[in-house]
Write a protein that binds this DNA or RNA. Sequence first.
RNA 1: GGUGAGGUAGCUCAGUUGGUUAGAGCAUCGGAUUCAUAACCCGAAGGUCACGAGUUCAAAUCUCGUUCUCACUACCA
Length: 679
Amino acid sequence: MPAIYKRTLVTSALPYANGPLHIGHLAGCYLPSDIYVRYKRSKGEDILFICGSDEHGAAIPIRAKIEGTTPKEIVDKYHKMMGDSFKEFGISFDVYSRTSNQIHHQTASDFFKTLYDKGSFTEETTEQYYDEEAKQFLSDRYIIGTCPNCANPNAYGDQCEKCGSTLNATDLINPKSTLSGSKPVLKLTKNWFLPLDKLQPKIQAYLNEHKDWKANVTGQCKSWLDNGDGLQPRAMTRDLDWGVPVPVKGAEGKVLYVWFDAPIGYISATKELRPTDWELYWKNKDTRLIHFIGKDNIVFHCIIFPAMLMEHGDYILADNVPANEFLNLEGNKISTSKNWAVWLHEYLIDFKDKQDVLRYMLCANAPETKDNDFTWADFQTKNNSELVAILGNFVNRTLVLTHKYYHGSVPSAETFTKEDLLTLEQLASFPDKIVASIEAFRFREALAEMMNLARLGNKYLADTEPWKLIKTDEVRVKTIMNIALQITCNLAIVCEPFLPFTSAKLLNMLNMPVLKWHAAKQTSNMAAGHQINKDELLFAKIEDEEIKIQIDKLELSKKNNTVIVVPPAKAETSFDDFSKMDIRTGTILEAERVPKTDKLLKLKIDVGIDTRTVVSGIAEWYKPEDIIGQKVSVLVNLAPRKIKGIESQGMILMASNAEGELSFMNSTKPDFNNGSEIK
RNA sequence: GGUGAGGUAGCUCAGUUGGUUAGAGCAUCGGAUUCAUAACCCGAAGGUCACGAGUUCAAAUCUCGUUCUCACUACCA
């Protein structure tokens, strides 16, 4: 089982620099990793916390094009924005680097070279589109053309966003380069593949050593390994000009695959932070490496990156990869493009100084074992019924009484009753309970345990009733208040990983220095006679009004997005081109599901000329029995194509909205005969 | 369709190798209390453990089937 490690290296997934951060990012991996690291630091352990912006990949140049700017400006903008958000929410990275740094380019480049020299890669030459004007190969996203499926003239080389089909660039009709607008030519290109198929036994063995990983993580890995023929070779280079150049002769105009270079970002960030002894954290068996990620990154961190490290040979592998599931917002998926999100930088405008409230909420509601939902109503309840009522209230009543009875001077504990001793014993047991949960990456459990300490305090005060005793037994009250203050002080220590701002505020009120974790096992951190500062409220109630504003804001963005998103006008086309299409009216005679598919219906349509079979992807919106007799428009001279073994002889025309939902368009004169031409 | 993860109280979740009346927090209701941000403290109510079958003395837990949700993947002419 786990060796005794001397130090820990914690990485958090590198966020992609093409948009601001939202609550899903925080809940997914940054908050859990921050809690873990803060606790380890508090214990005095040797630990580094690494992160940075992922600034490569094909999506960034495209985003730049849309915004009419350069990739560099995009990544600069979001790198700063994300870094600021992390800082504001107390995510305590030791370094927040970026993959566009020179040090990263060098590190990733060297890494690739090492694998290349070792002969780890296989080379494969394929035909790809090349733009002769721009003098470069075109990645799929740089090519647009007419979708062979739905005739959308603006389909991308990898996917048609209109009909959703996955494409190869070579499938496109009339391909065009988005760089120069010219017609690209097919040219041979060489790319380097990591033969994951050959590495599968080693990867399997590695995963077998880590049966203790979370169920969602091992499950995902298993599914990759067991699926079909197992792992497949994966290209580690791309024909693109944005990224780390491939350091090999004959690879001009190529960059490293973003998922090859991004995880190496962890290494280069460590180098940047510790130029002299970074290898201690990456190449020494006494170091424990932990990757905090979201579930979408599991395959890269559990299979591909370890495979790269194995091939290299010098590096240690991750000992654990605690991946979280996804956080939804008010019942819907968080979506950057639909603006369905709570943005971190906006949150702080509406909820100034309430970083810890969000941290608390996101930890208490973290999607640790399954997707979870963030609702504003729940946010309010957690703040008002837990932070205010339990934690804030306990601290407040203790401090108020201390000022009232002793002018803020800690009273001395005289003689302990049985009840006192029991309370002190429980107090001392909390750190270990919280530790057990944190070490098992069960942060919501750990947080609940922390709150139980505040509950213990509330109960102790309710049971001992110092406000009554003060009239009859002042000596006894001294002891009671001393204990209540000790609980308050220890709360400040154990809440620090979760609520760092609150902890600092509380220590300040107590006029205490920062205390290490082990101090929380002691029951006499505050000496008699110690003078505390003026008390103030730790948490404020959140009123219905404030919540309503947030919900309205979301509703508004929902409305805006459903109304505004209309695809842009297409390029002009000629009447000749249009008249080449033979579109007829028809009637659906038969309809049935195509087995083993989710979306496909096999239709028999009378189009006047004949009755033909058409396979159509409308099963998500129409049941077969409901559309028999439905009048449709059919493109009848489209080249036939086999889909799932069925020859489809045409295409029915459907309206499609922003959500990709499809609808029939009805003629207003029902008696039009089948086969009428649509012009 | 394939693979993986889930389905437990109104809500969010625990439930370790199958073993007494299935737990917690919040919400609800009742009581007590006033130091405290109408907060705290005590108590109650609330569950056919998605559904169906099987194995067993015993199933939330194991097996098989069905169904729903999410992710990856295939399919959208």
